[in-house]
Simulated scan of single mutants.
Amino acid sequence: MVIIKATKNSEAGVMPSEELLTAMGKFNEELVAAGVMLAGDGLHPSHKGKRVRFSGGQRTIMDGPFAETKELIAGYWIWQVKSMDEALEWMKRCPDPMPGEESEVELRPLFEMEDFGEELTPELREQEDRLRTELERQQGV
């Protein structure tokens, strides 16, 4: 997963320029053509969001905006690559997602079923397979 960190401008709702949208569109086309991009979207600023905190069986709902912009996410991609090195090679080609501001992008692998070891019982694996199949059906895949 490629996590695009929020900045002051993204949190203020400043929309990307036509130039950036064009550059990102071209980059996304390259990712799709290479079979790398599975999903990706930008997120509205945190003032439009909510957080739910779980503690001792209680749930507390908090309205945005949220402090600590550097900890917020402005967008994401889900990529299917063979290695972190391949993901980094793609990132080197990525347009600056927040031109004019210092910005950061974080790359983190998603868990695969085999990462869960014996705790993922055959029954849980079967349930996961059923859910994935149903999601694909709903999405028309």
Rank of each mutant, 00 (worst) to 15 (best):
Q139G: 06
D129P: 00
L21W: 09
F116D: 00
E102N: 14
E101G: 07
F111S: 06
S46G: 06
V52K: 12
Y76H: 07
F116K: 11
E114A: 14
G13V: 07
M84Y: 10
F116T: 00
G117L: 07
L110M: 13
E126H: 15
E18D: 10
P45L: 02
E29S: 13
L21Y: 12
S103N: 12
I78V: 10
V141L: 12
S17T: 12
R93K: 15
L110R: 13
S17N: 00
F111Y: 15
W79L: 10
S55F: 12
E119R: 15
E68Y: 12
W90Y: 08
E101S: 10
K48D: 15
S103V: 02
R59Y: 07
R59I: 00
V32T: 08
R53K: 14
R93V: 10
D96L: 11
V105C: 06
R93S: 13
Q127V: 12
E112C: 10
M91T: 04
I73Q: 09
E104N: 11
E19L: 04
G56M: 08
K5A: 05
Q138W: 03
L124K: 13
E29N: 11
R130I: 06
A12N: 12
E134D: 09
E136N: 09
R125T: 13
N28W: 06
M98K: 11
M1G: 14
E126K: 15
L72S: 05
G56F: 04
E86T: 04
P109S: 11
C94H: 15
T133P: 00
M15E: 14
G64N: 11
E30C: 08
M24D: 01
E11H: 08
E68H: 14
K70M: 11
M84Q: 11
I4V: 15
A39G: 01
S55I: 08
Q138D: 09
H44K: 11
A33C: 03
S17F: 00
A6I: 09
M24L: 11
T22V: 02
R108W: 05
G42P: 07
A39N: 11
S55L: 13
E118N: 13
E19A: 05
S10G: 08
L107W: 03
S103C: 15
G57Q: 13
L131E: 15
Q80N: 14
T133N: 09
E68G: 07
L20G: 03
T7A: 04
D63L: 02
G25V: 08
V141A: 08
M84E: 11
S83W: 04
L38F: 07
M24C: 05
Q138G: 05
E102W: 05
L120N: 07
A87N: 06
D115C: 04
K8R: 10
G25E: 08
G13A: 06
R51V: 00
M84N: 03
P99D: 05
L124T: 03
G57I: 07
H44P: 06
V105W: 04
S55T: 09
E102T: 12
R108Q: 09
V52E: 09
E71W: 04
E11G: 04
F116A: 10
K92F: 02
E119C: 03
G57V: 03
E11P: 09
A23P: 00
W79M: 09
I61P: 04
C94D: 07
F66H: 02
S55N: 14
E102G: 14
G57P: 15
M37G: 00
I78K: 02
E104D: 00
E18Q: 10
V36Q: 02
P99T: 10
M15G: 00
E134G: 01
L110T: 15
